[in-house]
Every structure is written in C-alpha cells, then in structure tokens.
C-alpha cells in the first residue's frame, strides 16, 4: 500500500497526538496535578504487566471477554435473524421494528433487574451485550437487505430464483457492506453492555474489578482494568475496520 503525502502527514500527526496524550497522562501523574487518584502512565503499565498479577487480570479478562464474545455472537445471530425474518415476511416488519427500538430505548440499567431475575447475575452482562449488539445489527441488516438493486431483483425473478436462493445469492451479499459496518459499531456496544452488566453484581470480570477498585481506592488497579477494556475494544474495533474496508471493496 502506497501512501500519499497528506496521508503520511495525517498518520504522523495521529501518532504524535497519541504520544502527546500518553506524555500528558504521565506528567499529570508525575506532578500530581490531578491529585492522588491520577497515576502515571508508567505506574499503570508496571502494575498491569507485573507477573504476579497475571492471574488476576487473566481471570478477569477471561470472564469478561467470554461474556462479550458470547453476547456479540448471540446479538449478531438474533439481529441478523430478525432482520431476515422481517425482510422475508414484510407484514411482520413494523412489529419487529417497534419491538427492537422499544428494547433499545430501555436503558441497560433498567433491564438489569429483569435479567438478574430471569437469568442470573453472572450472565447479565452477556444479556445486555446481546441486546446492544442485536439492535445495531438489526438496524444495519434491515437497511442493508433493502439495498439490492432493482435490476438485480428483476434478473433473479426472470431466472426463476426461489426466495431462499435470492436471499443467499443476492440479498445477503448486497447487505454485507452494511452488516459489516454494523458489526464494527457493535463492538464498543458489546463491551459497554458487558461492563454495565458486571457492575450490577457479577462475581468476576473487568467490570467488577473496576467497581471494587473504585470503592477501595486501588488506583492503579482501577486504571489498569479500564485500560484493558478500552485497549481490547479499540483493537477489536480496528480489526473490524479492516474487515469493513475489505468487504466494501469487494461487495459494492
């Protein structure tokens, strides 16, 4: 890949910005400009990569990431399934639309008690992540499925395509760019859902680590937990952006 001059400049400035941000973080901590609850960047990194804490963070990450991944996959499947259903059975669409946006309008904090009763404390994070992801994917997929072009639809009709063939060979491929964009925006949504869910009383995970560190003034632990969650979400988002670029180049 060859970059043009402005692109190189953008990249350099972006990297510079990140470095300045980390430097600022370090200096504010060093000079205690924000008080004792702002640790230096280096302190957080030292804390984070200390071998003795590998087990602690490993367990928390294992618990949270499995909830996030589970919620993401479940939300994706339900969202795509609902979109395909409302696309195939058009009369059902308004009802499914309304249900999806009503569920989305309920703040997760209000859904938590329901899930705690219905499911269990442990999987509440996964359930909220599922709902967050479901909505993003549902919206992206329903708009994507409408994107097949009229002449392609005519072609499939003349060729005598069945509904399922048309879905598989025309509607889904045409929807893929929208779906993948939805998948990208669903990643932070999954993280938010899982962390929020853990705040309502999970016994493991990064979210629990954050709340207990906050309540017990374990400042480096608090910042480390938030750092892990943010970095992981950012990496997932970055990978999804790469996938998105590939798919947009290929399918549209």
């Amino acid at each position: 890949m060859r970059l043009s001059r402005p692109q190189i400049q953008d990249l350099a400035l972006g990297v510079l910005g990140i470095l300045l941000f980390l430097l600022g973080w370090e200096l504010i901590g060093f000079y205690k400009l924000a008080g004792l609850t702002w640790p230096r960047f280096s302190t957080v990194m030292e804390y984070l990569f200390d071998p003795s804490r590998r087990g602690l963070f490993g367990r928390a990450m294992g618990a949270s990431f499995s909830m996030i991944l589970g919620g993401y996959l479940l939300g994706f499947l339900i969202g795509l399934g609902a979109a395909m259903l409302s696309y195939t059975l058009k009369p059902m669409q308004p009802g499914i639309d309304r249900l999806a946006s009503t569920i989305n309008a309920i703040p997760p904090i209000a859904l938590a008690p329901l899930f705690i009763v219905l499911l269990s404390r442990e999987v509440t994070g996964m359930a909220i992540a599922t709902i967050n992801v479901f909505f993003v994917i549902y919206v992206a997929a329903t708009s994507g499925l409408e994107k097949s072009r009229q002449n392609h639809r005519d072609l499939f009709k003349v060729l005598g395509a069945s509904k399922s063939t048309r879905m598989l060979r025309l509607d889904l491929p045409a929807a893929l760019p929208s779906i993948v964009s939805g998948m990208k925006y669903a990643t932070p949504a999954a993280f938010i859902g899982a962390i929020l869910g853990e705040w309502f009383g999970a016994s493991r995970g990064l979210g629990l680590l954050m709340v207990s560190a906050m309540q017990n003034f374990q400042i480096p632990l608090l910042w480390s937990a938030v750092f892990i969650a943010s970095a992981a979400s950012l990496i997932a988002f970055g990978l999804m952006s790469l996938l998105e670029r590939f798919v947009h180049g290929r399918f549209s």
């Binding site: 400035l13 972006g14 990140i18 938010i192 709340v211 906050m214 608090l222 910042w223 943010s230 950012l234």
Partner: peptide, 21 residues
C-alpha cells in the same frame, strides 16, 4: 491532525468504563 484521531479513538472505546475513574 493531532486531535481528530484522538477524538475518534475515544469515541470508539466503551466510554462508560471511564465512569469509575
């Protein structure tokens, strides 16, 4: 050039996680 990438980064991380901090 410096601020926009940072803004994009922060708007694609789970910002609610910053609440405890």
């Amino acid at each position: 050039g410096i601020l926009i990438p940072l803004g994009l980064i922060f708007s694609s991380v789970p910002v609610v996680a910053l609440i405890p901090i």
